[in-house]
């Protein structure tokens, strides 16, 4: 299956945002003197899964958008949501159970995609929305 340009573009934005916010999080850990290898590994696992989760959501949404039957698309996205939550549970449990990962550094990056989207909304020029609504 070919990945659409919209999915690639949005995943790129999210990956950049997550990387920047992870750097901020690591800086905060460093300032508080809690920085060690487990924080780095935890941040890598957490931010990596956050981006992967968004990418998988993108692939599912792209597949669902190509479907003709509304009910089938609905089931597909709900099934994907369940599987991604299950994978998130696995990642989080790994972060809590294994001592080589700092649990907070694994959990905090999970909300970074939401923060990135919020920041993207602030950054978007206002004229673009008006144009789209006018259909021009």
């Amino acid at each position: 299956m070919k990945i659409s340009a919209a999915v690639k573009k949005e995943t790129g934005h999210i990956a950049l945002g997550v990387a920047a916010l992870t750097a901020v999080m690591l800086a905060i850990f460093w300032i508080f003197g809690a920085m060690d290898a487990s924080v780095l590994w935890g941040a890598l696992l957490g931010s990596g899964y956050a981006v992967l989760n968004f990418f998988l959501l993108g692939i599912t949404v792209q597949k669902a958008a190509g479907m003709e039957k509304e009910g089938k698309a609905k089931s597909l996205i709900q099934f994907s949501y369940s599987l991604r939550m299950l994978a998130l549970f696995g990642v989080a449990v790994l972060g809590f159970v294994l001592s080589c990962f700092h649990w907070a550094a694994v959990i905090i990056p999970m909300i970074f995609p939401r923060v990135t989207i919020l920041m993207m909304g602030f950054r978007k020029p206002k004229g673009k929305e008006g144009k789209a609504e006018d259909g021009t």
Partner: peptide, 20 residues
């Protein structure tokens, strides 16, 4: 697709908050 993708990601965060 682009709008729906961002919308779905925002919607999903609520579930992730509960999960955390």
């Amino acid at each position: 697709t682009s709008t729906m993708l961002l919308g779905c990601a925002v919607a999903e965060t609520t579930g992730i908050y509960g999960f955390i």
